[in-house]
Amino acid sequence: MRIAIEDLDVALSGRTIVSGVRLVAEDGEIAGLVGPNGSGKSTVLRTVYRYLRPHAGRVLVGGTDIRSLTAPEAARRVAALPQERGSDFELSVRAVVAMGRTPYKRAFAGDDPADRDIVAAALAGVGLAGAEKRRFSALSGGERQRVLLARALAQDPEVLVLDEPTNHLDVLHQVELLALLREQRRTTLLSLHDLNAAASLCDRLHVLHEGHVVASGPPRDVLTPELLADVFGVRAAIIDHPLTGDPLIAFDHRSPAAVPAPAPPRPAEAVTAER
C-alpha cells in the first residue's frame, strides 16, 4: 500500500518543526528518513501513525487521508514502533504482543486460535520463540524492542512505521531485524541514524534537514560526499560494500567537514629553496 505525504507542516508550541514536506513510499517499498538530530524525522512519522495532527498538508495511505479513518481502521492499515518505548508493562511477553490483535476484535473479545498462531509467528520472527511467559518489564532493552516489533507485526498492517528500530539492539539482532524487514516486503517508512544500514536496507531515502526534505531517491544517488558534508557535517567517501555491493559510507573520523582539513606537508625541496 502506497504512502504519500503532501505539503506537511507541523508546529509544536508555536514553533515550526517541519514545513512543506513531500515524500512517498511506494507499495512494498522500504523508504528511509535520514537526517541530523532535530531535523524532523520523528515528527513526520508521528503524523503517519496519527500521534500528531499536522497544521497543514495530509498523509495518504492507499489514497485515503489517514485522519479520515476510524481508529480501528487506521490501526489495521498502519502499525508503529515509536521511539517512546513502554518499559513498565507488568504483562507477559505474549500479552504485549497480543495487543496487536486489538483492531480486529470486538470489545472484551478473547484470543482465538488464529490470534494465538499469529502471536507465536510474530515472536518467532523476531527471535523470541518460547519467551511468551516472560515478564515484559524484566527484559533487556533490546528484547523489549523486539517484543514491540512483534506486536506491530501481529497487527498484520499494510504499512509499518518504525522510528529508530535498531536502537538498543546488538549487532547480530540489528542484522537480523534488517533482514526481517527486507523479507517482509511490506510498505515500510522508517527513520535510521545508521546511514550504512539505511543504504543497505532502503529502496528510497528522504533526507531531512531543518524540517525540510532536501534530497530524495535511491540511496546511491542521494548519499553523496557533498550531501554528507552539507547536511551531516562530515567528510566521507562512498565505496561499494565488499560483501553485498551496497553503497558503503567510509567516514573520515580524523577531519570532519566542519573543520578544514590541514594543508598537506610541503615537499622538502620547496622549503629548502625558500631559505
Rank of each mutant, 00 (worst) to 15 (best):
148 L>A: 08
176 E>P: 00
269 E>L: 06
145 Q>T: 10
122 A>D: 03
69 L>D: 04
125 G>L: 04
183 E>M: 01
177 L>C: 10
154 A>K: 01
212 H>E: 14
223 L>P: 03
73 E>Q: 15
202 C>E: 10
122 A>E: 10
116 R>E: 15
111 D>R: 02
67 R>Y: 09
156 D>T: 13
10 V>P: 03
4 A>D: 11
256 P>W: 09
68 S>Q: 11
152 A>S: 09
241 H>T: 08
185 R>W: 12
80 A>R: 01
132 E>N: 12
154 A>G: 07
199 A>F: 03
218 P>F: 04
248 L>P: 11
248 L>W: 13
5 I>V: 15
112 D>W: 08
261 A>D: 01
91 L>D: 12
215 A>D: 03
193 H>F: 00
115 D>M: 12
131 A>W: 12
204 R>Q: 11
110 G>D: 08
258 A>S: 07
199 A>Y: 06
9 D>A: 12
60 L>D: 08
45 L>W: 07
185 R>G: 12
137 S>F: 05
255 S>M: 01
172 L>Y: 14
46 R>N: 04
56 A>W: 13
266 R>W: 01
40 G>K: 07
164 E>C: 11
159 V>W: 00
11 A>E: 14
107 A>H: 15
194 D>E: 06
234 V>P: 00
88 D>Q: 11
253 H>W: 13
261 A>T: 09
119 V>N: 13
156 D>N: 14
237 A>M: 05
43 T>L: 00
32 G>R: 02
106 R>T: 07
39 S>R: 05
145 Q>A: 00
271 V>F: 12
212 H>K: 13
202 C>Y: 10
76 R>G: 06
169 L>M: 02
266 R>Q: 14
142 G>F: 13
137 S>T: 07
187 T>D: 08
190 L>D: 02
190 L>Y: 05
64 T>L: 08
42 S>T: 14
222 V>S: 04
144 R>T: 05
